[in-house]
Design a protein around this nucleic acid. Structure first.
Length: 312
RNA sequence: GGCGCCAUCGCCAAGUGGUAAGGCAAGGGUCUGCAAAACCCUCAUUCCCCGGUUCGAAUCCGGGUGGCGCCU
């Protein structure tokens, strides 16, 4: 007689960078016997350690982590690939009869996992050609072309948004279908996992202090040195090198700004990023914003709130 | 005490008689395959104060206040 196991809802812990997701998740996972699946578009890359604020070796030793330092920086990577790796990790963890905790602030990744993406993988050839044309002909020409092929899609995109205009053209070129139709048919309707998203939401001032401290720590610990090493290894043109912190450290190496300026700018950019994360999850269905001390989260997990189990 | 220069958004700053550029910072937002990316929107009915000239003043004149510099 086959037993149908009701699948427990997947717990997702999201939140802006610096909110304390890592430490909270580890503490929670320890008590639940859970394993952590990181939903972080930068921490997935190997070697980029300081600037991505990965969990440190001590933290990693406490609870099994998945998708941290999982791919080579030179490897083409994207939300769909992450989601499929996350699927595998979750299946794996479930096979060990342990709960999986999805932890991270990359909104698109979480959405891709929970609802899937349209089945329209990128085509490097086509992409390269379109990007080349965009460079030669300018954003207006590209946008005009999209308007001819798919007025609805074009109407939603700013002319200057070359990244999305090119992607829409790529999707059209590879599938022959209008992107707006694909999008309407898909619409993130599928629920691939029943899930509960908890968005850690510290007060603005508190987050600000934490981000300032964290940025200072990154530079103190040698973010610029790490960046120099990564450049020497040939990772200058990789995706993570363009993320907040590394971009500024690179500018220091190139003599374009002082370390003080870089730190200042990194802090400001990080703060802006944190705001974008809030904006994203505010309209992500199934998301609950939880203020510190995150008691609701512990209680929902059936645990009592630790007296001082919170992160620094 | 005298003379000169300056005073425009939180900061930098253009404008020098015709109805307040721009940058930074800030705030809000978008997002279907590089997402810590890319992109969009908002942000001085008002130019230190008071008076005058003018159809019209941030712009000209006078007086004040504040800052800077030089001289005594």
């Amino acid at each position: 007689m086959p037993r149908v196991l009701p699948q427990p809802p997947l717990t997702v812990i999201a939140g802006p960078t610096g909110a304390g997701k890592t430490e909270l998740a580890i503490a929670l996972a320890e008590r639940l016997g859970a394993e952590i699946v990181s939903a972080d578009s930068q921490a997935v890359y190997r070697y980029f350690d300081l600037g991505t604020a990965k969990p440190d070796p001590g933290q990693l030793a406490r609870v099994p982590h998945h998708l941290v330092s999982a791919v080579e920086p030179t490897e083409p990577f994207n939300a769909a690939r992450w989601a499929s790796l996350a699927d595998a990790a979750i299946a794996d963890i479930s096979a060990r009869s342990r709960p999986a905790l999805v932890v991270g602030g990359t909104g698109l990744y979480v959405r891709a996992l929970l609802h899937g993406l349209t089945d329209t993988p990128p085509d490097p050839e086509v992409r390269r050609k379109l990007e080349d044309e965009a460079r030669r002909l300018g954003p207006e020409a590209m946008h005009r072309r999209l308007t001819d092929l798919d007025p609805d899609a074009a109407a939603r995109l700013a002319v200057a948004d070359v990244v999305r205009v090119v992607r829409a053209l790529e999707v059209h070129a590879t599938t022959g279908v209008r992107p707006s139709e694909l999008r309407a048919a898909h619409a993130f309707r599928a629920a691939r996992y029943p899930a509960r998203i908890h968005f850690l939401d510290p007060p603005r001032e508190e987050l600000e202090l934490r981000l300032a401290a964290r940025t200072r720590r990154m530079f103190e610990r040698g973010l610029v040195r790490e960046t120099a090493r990564l450049v020497a290894r040939g990772f200058r043109e990789t995706a993570p090198m363009r993320s907040v912190g590394y971009r500024q450290a690179l500018a220091v190496l190139d003599g374009e700004m002082t370390e003080e300026q870089a730190e200042r700018e990194t802090f400001l950019e990080t703060r802006r990023y944190a705001k974008r994360q809030r904006t994203w999850f505010r309209r992500e269905p199934g998301t609950r914003f939880v203020p510190p001390p995150y008691a609701a989260l512990w209680e929902e997990a059936g645990l009592s709130v630790p007296a001082h189990g919170r992160s620094r």
